[in-house]
C-alpha cells in the first residue's frame, strides 16, 4: 500500500498516477532504463533484453489469467506465432519497417488467440488449461511441418532478420535494447490503463464470478474472446521482438517449457497487478543466471562438475513454483506491499 492519496476532486480520482510515489517511481524507472545501456556490460544487456521481452508476454498473460481469471498453459504458442510471422514477413519482403512487422505479428497472434480462445466459452479452469496446452502442441506441430518450412524453417529452426530502422541495422545489444524497451514501456502503460476503463472492469467482473457478470449484462463470450485476443497480441508482440533479438529461433523454444515459464513468472510476481509481471519475470529469469555464476565460482569452471548445474536449475525452478504457491500465493507484489505498509507506519506500528 502506498500512502499519499490526497484527492480533492473527481478528475484526480480518475488519474493514472494517483499519488507521488507512483509518479516519481515511474520517472525514476524510466530514467534508470534510459541510463542502463550506457553503464551495463553486453551480458547484462542481453539479460535485460530477454527480461524486457518476457515482461511484455507476461503482462499479456496477466490480462488473461490475472484479470479475466481464465487459465492458459499454451501462451508459448502465441509467442511462436508472433516470432514466425515476423520471420515470414521478412522472408517475403526483406525490408519491411520493423514497427509494421511488429503490428502485423501482433494482429496475427491476436487472431490465433481468438481461435484458440473458442473453447473458453464451454470450459474453464483445468479443462481450459489442458485445451490451451493442446493448442500449444498443435501449433508447434504445424510450424514443424514440411509444407510451411519455406517460411518457418521447419523442425530445424530458422535464422531471423535484424530490425532495420531507416537504413540503420540494429545489431548490437545496445541498439536492440533501445528497440525493446520503448515497446515494453508502452505496452505496460496500455495494460495499466486498460483496467481503468469499462472494458477492463468488465474483465475483472468476469474473473470474480462469471455468471454474476453475465447477469450484470456483460457478454461473456465476446469479452472472454477479446481478453484472449489481447493477451495473445501481447505474446505476439513479444514473439516479434524475440525474433529481432535472437539470431535464430527453433520451434521447441516455444514449447510447454516457455508456456509454463510465463505462467510461473506471473505467479511469482503476483496476478492481477501491473507490477507483478515485472517483479516475477526479473526474479524467474535472473535466478538461473545467478545459479550459473555461483556454480562457476564453486566448481571453478570444472566441466565435469557442470553436469549437475542444469538438473539443479530445474529443481530450483520447481521448488520456487511450489514455494511461492505455499508460502506467498499473492506473489512478490505482496511482499512489496507489506514493505511499503510497514514503511508508511513506521515507527508507530508494525
Amino acid at each position: 500500500m502506498i500512502t499519499g492519496h490526497f484527492k480533492t476532486d473527481y478528475s484526480a480520482d480518475e488519474g493514472i498516477w494517483s499519488n507521488w510515489p507512483k509518479r516519481w517511481g515511474l520517472v525514476a524507472a524510466l530514467v534508470g532504463l534510459a541510463i542502463f545501456p550506457f553503464v551495463a556490460s553486453n551480458y547484462a544487456l542481453l539479460l535485460a533484453g530477454q527480461i524486457g521481452i518476457f515482461i511484455v508476454a507476461v503482462v499479456g498473460l496477466n490480462v488473461l489469467i490475472g484479470y479475466t481469471g481464465l487459465m492458459s498453459l499454451g501462451h508459448g504458442a502465441f509467442f511462436a506465432v508472433g516470432a514466425y510471422t515476423t520471420v515470414a514477413i521478412h522472408h517475403e519482403w526483406p525490408l519491411t519497417f520493423p514497427l509494421i512487422t511488429l503490428v502485423i505479428s501482433t494482429v496475427v497472434a491476436a487472431a490465433f488467440g481468438v481461435l484458440f480462445g473458442l473453447p473458453s466459452l464451454r470450459v474453464k479452469g483445468l479443462y481450459l488449461a489442458v485445451a490451451t496446452l493442446s493448442a500449444n502442441f498443435i501449433i508447434l506441430f504445424l510450424i514443424e511441418q514440411e509444407w510451411l518450412a519455406e517460411w518457418t524453417g521447419g523442425i530445424s529452426g530458422t535464422e531471423t532478420p535484424n530490425a532495420v530502422f531507416f537504413g540503420v541495422e540494429l545489431v548490437s545489444q545496445q541498439a536492440k535494447y533501445f528497440f525493446i524497451m520503448p515497446v515494453m514501456v508502452l505496452m505496460l502503460l496500455f495494460a495499466q490503463n486498460l483496467f481503468r476503463t469499462r472494458f477492463g472492469r468488465a474483465l475483472i467482473a468476469i474473473r470474480d464470478k462469471d455468471y454474476s457478470a453475465e447477469i450484470l449484462g456483460i457478454a461473456l463470450f465476446s469479452y472472454k474472446l477479446k481478453s484472449f485476443a489481447i493477451s495473445a497480441a501481447y505474446c505476439g508482440a513479444a514473439g516479434s521482438l524475440w525474433a529481432y533479438f535472437f539470431p535464430a529461433i527453433l520451434p521447441e523454444d516455444f514449447g510447454l517449457n516457455m508456456s509454463i515459464t510465463l505462467v510461473v513468472c506471473l505467479v511469482a510476481g503476483g496476478m492481477g497487478r501491473t507490477l507483478g509481471p515485472i517483479f516475477g519475470t526479473i526474479l524467474i529469469l535472473l535466478v538461473p543466471e545467478l545459479l550459473k555464476i555461483v556454480a562457476a565460482s564453486i566448481t571453478g569452471g570444472d566441466a565435469t562438475a557442470q553436469t549437475w548445474v542444469s538438473p539443479t536449475r530445474d529443481i530450483l525452478f520447481g521448488l520456487m513454483i511450489i514455494g511461492f504457491l505455499i508460502f506467498e500465493p499473492m506473489g512478490l507484489v505482496n511482499i512489496w506491499d507489506r514493505f511499503w505498509r510497514f514503511m508508511s507506519r513506521w515507527p508507530f506500528a508494525k
Binding site: M71, L73, L126, A129, I260, V263, V264, V267, W308, S310, P311, T312, R313, D314, I315, L316, F317, G318, L319, M320, I321, I322, L325, I326, P329
Partner: peptide
C-alpha cells in the same frame, strides 16, 4: 494453485532424476 504445484513438481522430479 493445485495445477501449478504439480507443474512445479514436474521440474523438481525431472531435475532430481537427472541428478
Amino acid at each position: 494453485a493445485m495445477i501449478l504445484s504439480t507443474v512445479g513438481l514436474i521440474w523438481v522430479l525431472e531435475g532430481s532424476a537427472g541428478l
